[in-house]
Design a protein around this nucleic acid. Structure first.
Lengths: 334, 334
DNA sequence: AAACGATGTGTAACCGGTTACCTATTTCAT
DNA sequence: ATGAAATAGGTAACCGGTTACACATCGTTT
């Protein structure tokens, strides 16, 4: 493989000129440019990213740390991140943390060694002091759906609380008179805020009871189990708001197995807007997040930071949108 | 950040000794080792991967090129690859090709620049001469489900043909008397071999007709459309073998919409064994590939190659396994 | 006693870029 | 006419590792 010195020799200039040409900084005469271009072409020269990284402390690499690529939500996010990164000439490193703090720590260490230019976090186990550490080391990073207390950093998230309220309101509008909630892990912002949204929307109703909520761990089987418990306690439930789509899918499955008709007997609404919701029958009403857009924005923000943007850290909140589908389309009482 | 020279100074030895210690090659006195260890700890020294890569031409990075991370099959594959890679101290770069040759070309160029140690291909647009080029440049790589003609390389794949035959046989065993096939892209090995398996299994039946097959493009909507066309042409179809699970899910959806009972009226079988098949109701019978295992094996093979294994290129064929589920559980005629 | 291999460590070149600093010429405003 | 600014490009140090080679010591073999 040709090196920059080979090119310099062939073009009859110094390496500095080649470097200036490549990086488009400093002055290079037009004629010289042509000669350099020619030399690069004949030698099929490709600058070595390793050397570049070492000398310039830029690797053109960003890391994406999240729980599990197998989860459709994160897969879509990853897709957006990779698309944008490629557009800007960056490469994406994939890190599955399984929400385990130690894995995350290892990743951070390894990524530092590898001089990644920035990190995108969509994982929940990060502690506040880890965030501080990153800040101190001046590694640009963005948090998705997670705002560490007290430390300033850029956060990209959705209006979970508002979305949850919309979901419950929608169920009420469809005529539901007793609405349960399957909630996600309460150590996540998403799980917590959606729970709160539900609670705030229903607590003033006479039918409300704390036994109308059940954990579902953001998983399909969790949703199934939750439904079973809920229906056992309250056979007269006629609406369920699941804290995410995965649990909603599980809920639907269990309801169908139990012979409960959706939406006539029980209406069901999820949260996230992943494709799974339109794959099942009936299709599930959901509060859609702009997953792809969130991925795009966070990547753009990260790259901006990497490339020297020093503006204040900000929290970006995305609107969510209720998408009514069959799982809540109830025949109205006249 | 501390460098190797800082460590050397503190430990009172030369950089060579530190390097030898770190890489466990060459002799280092036991007492010296202790001093070096101590120095590394006090300075919180982390070797710089960039410098290592430049000097040693090893980056500890492998790339995974496939169509789309959003596809559950590839997501699971990616998960396996990342898990194994992490175990061996490698980092995974994510590349979505969308099966576009130009994107793949760009990736290969970029990845070469970045000195990835090896590449895992699960994308289909690669041409034979591209493979040759990789071979010439001595970049270790593995192909998943794709054997380029004439060039030798390591391939990891499944017994698609056999699996397809199993699927059809299973439908026959369940009493189906007219079986259609929704096929995937014929420029993919997977699509082609499964089609062939179907054809070979049914062509000798009197009911067989070429109009019993319909393309579904490996997509949900493709599966839906295919079912519509098939049922229009042959309302008496009582079994469908879909070339992958995604299309099977689409087929199920359309059948349900059309009011066709699954499995009583039409039995349905997919291929791949992704989670989607147990999320829908009824759960879909499928020919499961060992997706995770395939990912693990190919990553192991790749890393072996990277670390100097020169043994002959081989083709590894995984067994597939039919998993009977509700979508084919028909009441037998006595 | 000489020769040899194993052990232990240091020196310095090298990997392939970037860039601070320097020199030289040309342009242009005062 | 003159000095500042813009243009053009070269030299060499530097990024932080790896490793070939040299050298020294010590135990073992012949």
């Amino acid at each position: 493989m040709a090196t920059i010195r080979d090119v310099a020799k062939l073009a009859g200039v110094s390496v500095a000129t080649i470097s200036r040409f490549l990086n488009k900084n400093g002055y290079v005469n037009e004629e010289t440019k042509l000669r350099v271009e020619q030399a690069i072409k004949t030698l099929q020269y490709e600058p070595n990213a390793m050397a570049r990284g070492l000398a310039g402390r830029k690797t053109g690499t960003i890391a994406l740390i999240f729980p599990d690529i197998t989860n459709p939500f994160f897969a879509e996010l990853a897709r957006a991140v990779e698309d944008v990164a490629r557009m800007y000439g960056y490469t994406v490193i994939l890190c599955n943390s399984d929400n385990q703090a130690d894995k995350e720590q290892t990743y951070i260490r390894v990524l530092k060694q590898r001089y990644v230019d920035g990190i995108l976090f969509a994982s929940y186990s990060l502690r506040s002091d880890d965030v501080d550490a990153l800040n101190n080391e001046k590694i640009p990073f963005i948090m998705l759906d997670r705002a560490p207390r007290e430390t300033s950093c850029t956060v990209v998230s959705s209006k979970h609380l508002e979305g949850a309220q919309q979901a419950v309101q929608h169920l009420l509008d469809e005529g539901c008179t007793k609405i349960a909630h399957i909630y996600g892990p309460q150590d996540t912002v998403t799980g917590r805020e959606r729970f709160m949204g539900y609670e705030q929307s229903v607590k003033h109703f006479p039918w409300y009871s704390p036994s109308l909520v059940e954990p579902g761990y953001f998983r399909v089987d969790g949703g199934m189990e939750a439904v079973e418990n809920l229906m056992k306690r309250h056979p007269d439930i006629d609406g369920i708001f699941a804290g995410n789509d995965t649990m909603a899918v599980g809920a639907l499955k269990k309801l169908q197995r139990m012979g409960v008709r959706v939406p006539d007997q029980v209406a069901l609404c999820g949260f996230d807007g992943i494709d799974l919701t339109v794959i099942v029958e009936p299709e599930i009403t959901t509060v859609a997040q702009s997953i792809y857009d969130m991925g795009m924005l966070s990547t753009r923000l990260l790259i901006k930071k990497i490339e020297g943007d020093n503006s204040e850290d900000q929290t970006h909140l995305f609107d969510v949108k209720l998408i009514p589908r069959e799982s809540t389309r109830r025949k109205r009482k006249e």
